[in-house]
Design a protein around this nucleic acid. Structure first.
Lengths: 210, 210
DNA sequence: CGCACGATTCGCTGCCGGGCGAAGTGTCGT
DNA sequence: ACGACACTTCGCCCGGCAGCGAATCGTGCG
């Protein structure tokens, strides 16, 4: 777990459990000890709990131990092919995550379509008439579903991206964006995996929009 | 046990058992594991068996762990007479350690000769023209050996002093300082021991320099 | 040669701590 | 209001390891 956290990212408990190949209760107990011992810090966001190394001294100790530890098959998460795909683009619940999601969020903030994002906090959808707003049909975000029932889900919400430690777009807008990107064939689901593939058409379209 | 070996000395099994406050069979089993794991090397001399750290990586790992470990009362070792001598002045690999090393480091920092030390981190050698810098010939530190080969060893490095838990001077400067102090007769080696004796001349010289 | 001493091996005990399934808690979304 | 989900707590089992006493091995010294 500590090795997985070496690059400074914050990872949720479930992810650390999977990396360590143990069940959630075991991971929870172990993480509790790491926190009690001051090796990692935790940050609760919604129903997730993100863990990160407590400081550079801890990272130094882990690295020093790696130097004298017998080499193990580093099937470590950070270098496998699927890990790279996940870091690039993936779905997070019903919205987009990964590098591409952050780029998209930055672009929308720059266009003035949304307020700057804060992890876990609700945001506001402002102008929907910029180039991106028109192309991505942001105007439709207001009316959710056909029931006419006003959802309590905020129209925009920041959701901490665990690969980059910055918030990407969740909420109704996040859901809408993923649906549009899938419908228009810019990204495609990869079976058996949460990762998403950016299609050739998508790559072209993103480039055209800057 | 590893902490006791941090200064590079080789200690017999019985000594390590006493330091760890365990009986000989326990120490023997533990040391066997340390040897098997490649953390320490052993050397049989007569009916004794001396153990030492396997290398600087191991020392680095132990030091890194000390930085994040809660402080413990180091009771056992700190009371014997030889322990007091070791705490005062000793060699650590090829450089100076102990109280005197820390005083020297503080004085050099105060004079602006070196940047404040950080355990395990490389530092910089700045002015060499202060009273201490001139007296200790810090100007010679730059040219290492006669080969002209640029050593990758940093000119200054912080090395955690296990008696005081503060960094003293290692690196090329540390090596240089010990060589100068020995050459000028300020300190002298004590046979059969890593401890150093501050000579009368040395005491006088240190006092004169503040 | 025999004793003293350092170190090791053997057998045993106590216990800590990792690991899991099942059930509970809080949050999110419909 | 309700179900889904992330995480935690509880209770339990089990393996392994630290630690020791007694006996053994090997070396050095008288």
């Amino acid at each position: 777990m500590l090795v997985a956290l070496l690059d400074g990212r914050a990872l949720p408990a479930s992810e650390l459990a999977a990396i360590a190949r143990v069940k959630p209760p075991t991971a929870s107990a172990h993480l509790a000890q790491l926190v009690a011992g001051g090796l990692v810090t935790d940050r609760r966001i919604g129903r997730h709990r993100y863990f990160a190394l407590a400081g550079p001294e801890v990272a130094g100790a882990v690295e020093a131990l790696q130097l004298i530890a017998p080499r193990r098959a580093v099937t470590s998460y950070s270098q496998s092919a699927t890990a790279r795909r996940l870091a690039e683009a993936r779905s997070c619940y019903d919205h987009l995550a990964g590098r591409i999601a952050l780029d998209l969020a930055d672009a929308l903030v720059a266009e003035g379509a949304i307020s700057p994002l804060d992890a876990g906090e609700p945001g506001r959808l402002h102008a929907t008439d910029g180039p991106l707003g028109v192309r991505l049909r942001l105007g439709e975000v207001g009316d959710v579903g056909t029931t006419g029932v006003r959802s309590r889900r905020p129209e925009v919400r920041g959701c901490l991206d665990w690969t980059e430690r910055r918030p990407h777009i969740a909420g109704r807008l996040g859901s809408h964006l993923l649906a549009v990107l899938l419908a228009d064939g810019w990204v495609a689901r990869v079976p058996g995996d949460r990762s998403l593939r950016v299609t050739a058409a998508g790559r072209e379209a993103f480039a055209a929009l800057g």
